Amino acid sequence: MTVSASRSSGLPRGIRFAAMVGLVLAALTGWSALSEATHLAHFYEARERQLENEFPAWMGDKALMETVVRTQYSALEPMREPRTVLMGVLSIACAFVFVAAARMLRPDGLPREGMRRLLGRAAITVAVLRTIDGAQFAVVSRRMGTALAQSMKNLPAYQDPVAADMVSTLAPWFAVGLSVLGTALVAGTFALLGQYFRSDSVRDAVLAREPATEEE
Rank of each mutant, 00 (worst) to 15 (best):
A147E: 02
G188M: 02
G177Y: 05
K153G: 14
L192P: 00
P156Q: 07
A171T: 08
S179W: 00
V176G: 13
V186M: 07
V180Q: 02
T189L: 10
A149F: 01
V176S: 11
L178R: 11
V162R: 00
T183D: 06
D160I: 14
V176L: 04
G194C: 09
T146C: 00
Q195C: 14
A163C: 02
A191T: 03
Y158T: 13
G145Q: 07
T189V: 14
R142H: 14
Y196V: 09
L192W: 13
R143W: 10
N154D: 06
Q159M: 12
L181R: 05
F190Y: 14
R142I: 08
M166C: 11
A191S: 11
S141G: 05
T183K: 04
P161R: 05
N154S: 14
Y196C: 13
L181I: 10
V162D: 01
A187L: 07
F190W: 09
Q159G: 15
V162I: 10
D160A: 15
A175V: 01
A175I: 02
G182N: 11
A163G: 03
S179C: 13
A191M: 12
R143K: 12
A164N: 15
M144K: 07
G182R: 03
K153Q: 14
A157F: 09
A187I: 09
P156D: 01
S141P: 08
A187Q: 14
A164M: 12
A184N: 10
Q159D: 11
M144D: 08
G182L: 03
M144Y: 01
V186P: 13
A147L: 09
T189N: 12
A164V: 03
G182P: 11
S168N: 15
A149T: 04
P156S: 11
Q150F: 01
